[in-house]
Design a protein around this nucleic acid. Structure first.
Length: 406
DNA sequence: ATAGGGATAACT
DNA sequence: AGTTATCCCTAT
């Protein structure tokens, strides 16, 4: 059942809706069973933790811990440390420091402590082990922040920049890339392997033993657990799997009588997922399900995820069952979390210091409009030096001040 | 990416 | 006070 544990854990860690799963407790609960033979699952857990932290809008030193853990895990797997991880680490570190820069002068608050803790100690150990996280960017920030402790102008300048936005953007980018890199879940890939195997030799009945390697053994075991081992007759296997899931649900009910809506949702989702996998493993049972269980309660109980999916299945069933190649499986997409869009969770972003337009800048803008029209992006690109301090929106606003909105 | 509405700093 | 210049947010 260790395999099942792993798969269920993976399923929960990957689902992106209603993510109230806390990865570390979940994994530590399973820890005695699977010691350290599943690095992929650990990466999944860390990604889930990072996601959760982002959803809560927390970019703190706990996030730095998570990023460091992620780096170690990737190293163990001999994966490449992507640029996004480096950037995310750098900007998160700066943001963590910036949190302590709210006093007007550097010596007032805990800025010094933060420098010591984050940059001397933490980054120091990174340097010692020659981590890839130590980038030029990071070193530049280190020296800048150290200078800021001495020079009030630099302190002010850094204090007023919006680091948080950058940190969150890079963290989101990191999540996106890493979720994608993780690929499909192990349950899904096992199912796919098995499906391909069956496709290769359609007349072969059940496989046992070594020809499928260790994974083959485990999936067979699990199939037996689920009651889908005896599949030759096809009949009733879906009933059994559905009943099994129902049993699990009942057990959950017994232990936790106050199942809320979210948990019910999870249970149903899990059930759907298992049914999908079952169909994927052996498409022949699908027909049996449709025919034999037409009035079966398991069909009634089975929630219908979305109308389109359902009708598509019925269509293919009506014409030719072999047309259905691959059912839709919920391969998780990266969380589309955007805590920066609305409602800043902590202090509001400080307003960028106001700077009047120089005649040179105005001239550049005039030239630009003459050449490109109101394509502010092109205008900025055409003269990036003079207009370095002006965003595209700034250009638009200035033009409006010159001519529009009188 | 851009336009427009609106807030705020700077100015009169 | 009112006005203007700049910056920010959001809908399209």
């Amino acid at each position: 059942m260790e395999v099942m544990d792993k798969w269920v854990a993976e399923f929960f860690l990957r689902r992106q809706q209603n993510p109230r799963v806390y990865a570390s407790p979940l994994l530590s609960a399973l820890q005695p069973v699977d010691s350290d033979d599943c690095p992929k699952l650990k990466v999944t857990a860390v990604l889930r933790d990072i996601s959760n932290s982002l959803i809560r809008g927390t970019v703190d030193e706990g996030m730095l811990d998570l990023l460091e853990i992620l780096e170690k895990l990737l190293l163990e797997e001999h994966s490449v440390i992507m640029g996004s991880l480096k950037s995310a680490y750098c900007w998160t570190a700066v943001e963590c420091t910036l949190r302590f820069m709210w006093p007007v002068t550097a010596s007032d608050g805990f800025f010094g402590d933060a420098l010591e803790r984050i940059w001397r100690t933490r980054v120091g150990t990174l340097k010692e082990r020659e981590s890839d996280l130590v980038t030029r960017e990071l070193l530049k920030w280190e020296s800048d922040l150290n200078k800021a402790f001495e020079k009030p102008e630099i302190y002010q300048k850094i204090r007023e920049t919006n680091i948080r936005y950058n940190a969150i953007s890079h963290l989101n980018q990191l999540l996106k890339e890493q979720w994608a890199l993780l690929g499909c879940s192990s349950l899904e890939s096992v199912a796919q392997k098995r499906f391909l195997k069956r496709k290769d030799s359609p007349y072969a009945s059940r496989r046992r033993g070594n020809d499928f390697g260790r994974a083959g053994n485990t999936i067979d075991n699990v199939n037996e657990e689920l009651g889908i081992g005896e599949r030759e007759r096809g009949n009733g296997s879906n009933r059994e799997i559905a009943d099994d899931v129902d049993k699990v649900n009942q057990q959950e009910q017994e232990h936790e009588p106050s199942l809320n809506k979210g948990d019910m949702l999870v249970a149903r989702e899990l059930k759907d997922f298992l049914l999908e996998i079952q169909r994927l493993i052996d498409p022949s049972t699908r027909q049996d399900q449709e025919h034999d269980n037409a009035m079966d309660q398991s069909v009634d109980v089975t929630p219908q995820p979305d109308g389109a999916n359902r009708t598509e299945a019925e269509d293919s069933e009506g014409t030719s069952s072999s047309r259905r190649v691959r059912p839709h499986l919920p391969t998780p997409e990266p969380l589309n979390v955007s805590p920066l869009k609305k409602g800043r969770l902590d202090r509001p972003r400080p307003r960028r210091p106001m700077k009047f337009w120089t005649p040179e800048e105005v001239a550049a803008l005039r030239e630009g409009v003459k050449e490109y029209g109101k394509s502010w992006k092109d205008i900025k690109n055409s003269n990036p030096v003079v207009l370095a301090d002006r965003s595209e929106v700034d250009l638009k606003d200035k033009w409006r001040n010159l001519f529009g909105r009188q």
